[in-house]
Design a protein around this nucleic acid. Structure first.
Lengths: 346, 346
DNA sequence: TTGTAAGCGTTATCAG
DNA sequence: CTGATAACGCTTACAA
């Protein structure tokens, strides 16, 4: 039952109330309740205060605390798409370490409201730091991040620390796997530019092919939004315009799932007639049939690490160790890849 | 590059600074910047202030504002499991309407830290209201919610407004569909008690069966955590202990996905040998093969509605209209259900 | 050991 | 129309 507007102003209990009940001054209350664990306070007073607080059900007002300490003990995280399981994993990883450290987590989804706007708002709310995931830095207003503590996930930046996965390596891994299976007519499906990570996955893939002397004709390089629908559409187009493709690497799992769907709809058998490799290893990858071969990117690890990094930075600690090298990715062999059919070989 | 600890205290720009630059008093700045749209302010001063603010890049401190207004313009949302796509959809729906209304969204995942603790913290942060999803109210400390603006998703409460889906109806729908296909040996997989919604789904299912004179022997009522792993395990057990089952209804899609996996692993063909119905219609449901027949529950609609409801309540507006009837659920026919094989019929 | 007092950055109430 | 001035609830020197 919602409180009536202005009906019963349910008196907030403040440290003054506690002070009154305990018969001490307000600052003493503050001292024992939040001050250094062993502030010089007589045991008698201390317990009196604590009891009074308990009796009254006192809860400190963190806004007030934040105001004076100039620190909110909250951090913001803005992601490009909350419906992408990869990002929810990042969020969930970050939320966990933040909450464990007593930090609040403010969430922003950049689909409706642009990332820059979210960052702006978060800063007005005085978050101590911001994690950006799936957000291209150069898409933000010039100094949206000026003077802010920011950690970027999977984006390069020479102004902010970041955590990243080895996207280039992911592409290489996928290519190598497919090459080793004997595929020579490979395709790639991925977004046009979007984020750095996607670009690097593509480059890694292409680089590995080139080194193996295998070409990637433009007809087999399909652009698509990194979603299931995007992958589906791109795959349909690929099947329509190109006959010989025996294997395709998708920029992320969602895309791969779409490709799988389109492939099935077109009567392709996977992996018999077509091999598919995804990237991310979202949970879903294991639930499709056949299970998706993919390159595992530790999403929740990225989120957790980003949060840890941010917390360290907030404490003025050295962030070097965490920011160094990209998190390793790993090929996960499952059911959507196999050698090409004999007749498909060049 | 993280700011050095205490190195350059990047002076926060306050309304005082703006006042100084505009040559007016601080309160005037506040007046023009946040006061009622057409506060009685000379146009000259107004523009002077606005320019000064722009030049300085002034951003109001929402903590300070919240402190004096006793309102933070933020709301909290705590969910039982951030990795369950159903809840991330709820969150995403709520985030969207909250953000559109200028509210901040604080997130809490109850897997690591209990929901009650999250609520506590959110209240200390002075959130104006809290949305609870997947959280059983009676699992919370007695007066964790006392005097708070709370909206519960898919849980009954006579003390707080809530939004709910027609869980009982969902169970009925699933049962009716299966019965109409000709199934008579039905099973149910779901959690022991967990949340009210799960209980109602089960009851609706059972009620419909009973009305049709079909029994649900205890061997076909399997308990499982509402996750893929849970469903998998339960399905394995079911297949081991019971031969005749021709169709199973799972308390949620995750469970159904697990059941599908276990079924496939055991060599069952779906829907030929076994029909499976899920509940929720998470995105994933369309990406498995065959696609999962399920009962669609409008998760993001629930989240959005919960947020709207909360915002209304915060404005002291009537919440009756929104809180009335449960959101409708809908059977989504896809590929995991079919008539039982002839030999399977009793 | 504990109380007094000065803010933190806003909004809000009044005078002028 | 605009400027003092008093909160908001808390932390933190500095006194006592």
């Amino acid at each position: 039952m919602p409180r009536e507007r202005g009906a019963d102003p349910p008196k907030r209990i403040t440290s003054h109330d506690v002070a009154a009940r305990a018969g001490v001054s307000q600052s003493t209350v503050s001292l024992v309740l939040s001050g250094s664990p062993r502030a010089r306070i007589a045991d008698a007073t201390r317990t009196r205060v604590i009891e009074a607080a308990r009796d009254l059900g006192y809860r400190p007002n963190l806004l007030a605390r934040g105001l004076v300490q100039r620190r909110s003990f909250a951090l913001g995280i803005v992601v490009s798409d909350l419906d992408n399981p990869f990002f929810t994993e990042v969020v969930s990883g970050a939320e966990r370490v933040a909450a464990d450290a007593g930090y609040g987590v403010l969430l922003g989804d950049a689909r409706e409201i642009p990332a820059g706007e979210h960052v702006q708002r978060l800063r007005e709310r005085q978050v101590d730091g911001v994690i950006l995931a799936g957000v291209a830095l150069d898409a933000l207003p010039p100094d949206a991040l000026a003077g802010a503590n920011v950690v970027v996930v999977d984006e390069p930046s020479d102004t902010h620390p970041g955590v990243a996965s080895d996207a280039f390596g992911a592409g290489r891994l996928a290519a190598r796997h497919l090459l080793e299976l004997g595929h020579r007519r490979l395709a790639f499906i991925g977004p046009a530019s979007e984020s750095h990570t996607f670009r690097m996955r593509e480059r890694g893939f292409v680089a590995e092919l080139r080194e193996a002397g295998v070409a990637l004709p433009s007809a087999r390089l399909r652009r698509a939004r990194p979603s299931v629908a995007g992958g589906e559409r791109a795959m349909r187009a690929l099947l329509r315009e190109d006959e010989g493709t025996t294997a395709v690497f998708c920029a992320n799992d969602l895309t791969a799932l779409g490709a799988l769907k389109a492939g099935a709809a077109a009567g392709m058998t996977v992996p018999g007639g077509l091999s598919v490799v995804g990237c991310d290893d979202i949970e879903m990858a294991r639930y499709v049939t056949p299970e998706l071969t993919t390159v595992r990117v530790p999403a929740r690890g990225l989120g957790a690490r980003a949060a840890r990094l941010l917390l360290l930075a907030l404490d003025g600690r050295d962030t070097g160790a965490l920011t160094r090298k990209p998190l390793e990715v790993q090929l996960v062999l499952r059911g959507t890849t196999a050698p090409p059919l004999a007749e498909s070989c060049p």
